[in-house]
């Protein structure tokens, strides 16, 4: 127990926790994309999928939500604590810095984290509980989706958040693997074809829905 606490106390331990929780959340996000794309099969199929989750798979859904909440809490706690340590580690900034390897994704990952956290809260209030939805109908997920995303402001918010999640996955999927010590040696360690493919898949997969609603493909 002491060893685990000491591990959590270290910068490496916290980062490994961020990596493990991050990968779990990415795995879930891929399932979420697959689920969303059921909308293209029509209202009946999409509501059938939603009914499956809320009916026969209800207990699994609750368990999954608990696991996700736990992941999110650990991920955010570790990131806030690490960000504080990192800030303190360089009290006096350089007059000039010229990044040589850092990507846009790596440098905006904290900002992106805040964007995603805000998005998750709004998204749940919008399409899961319906408090900020204009016409929320319980058990009609397809209606909620199409009506909710028909508002240009909401759709724009989703599209911005999906850029954030794409960037987060681009850096996170790659770095999580490394923070868990799973990466094997490579002659070009900064390259990440898998993470890039995953990021594009998630970004495009999610963004397709609001775009399709705005273009009238889904109604």
């Amino acid at each position: 127990m002491n060893r685990l606490l000491a591990c959590w106390d270290s910068t490496l331990g916290k980062k490994a926790v961020m990596g493990a929780t991050g990968l779990l959340m990415i795995a879930w996000v891929v399932l979420h994309v697959a689920g969303n794309l059921q909308a293209f099969r029509g209202a009946a199929a999409f509501n059938g999928y939603s009914g499956l989750l809320h009916g026969p798979l209800h207990e699994a859904l609750i368990l999954m939500r608990l696991v996700l909440l736990g992941c999110l809490l650990l991920h955010v706690t570790a990131s806030l604590q690490l960000a504080r340590r990192n800030r303190l580690a360089r009290p006096e900034p350089y007059a000039r810095t010229e990044p040589q390897a850092a990507t846009m994704a790596s440098r905006t990952i904290r900002l992106g984290g805040w964007v995603l956290l805000t998005f998750v809260v709004l998204h749940l209030l919008h399409l899961t509980t319906g408090q900020i939805h204009p016409d929320f109908v319980e058990a009609d997920a397809y209606h909620n989706l199409v009506v909710g995303l028909a508002q240009p402001l909401a759709a724009a918010g989703y599209l911005v958040a999906m850029v954030s999640i794409g960037l987060h996955v681009y850096h996170g999927a790659w770095s999580s693997w490394r923070s868990l010590g799973l990466a094997q040696g490579s002659s070009r360690p900064l390259e990440r074809p898998l993470a890039a493919a995953l990021a594009v898949l998630v970004w495009l997969g999610f963004s397709l829905i609001p775009v399709a609603v705005l273009l009238g493909w889904l109604e």
Partner: peptide, 25 residues
């Protein structure tokens, strides 16, 4: 009081001996 790794890769680019970030993994 050193900070933690966020995998920017800057260290590897700066290293005069080109030590790879694979060592961090």
């Amino acid at each position: 009081g050193f900070g933690g790794c966020t995998w920017h890769g800057e260290c590897m680019e700066a290293c005069p001996k080109e030590i790879s970030i694979d060592w961090i993994a």
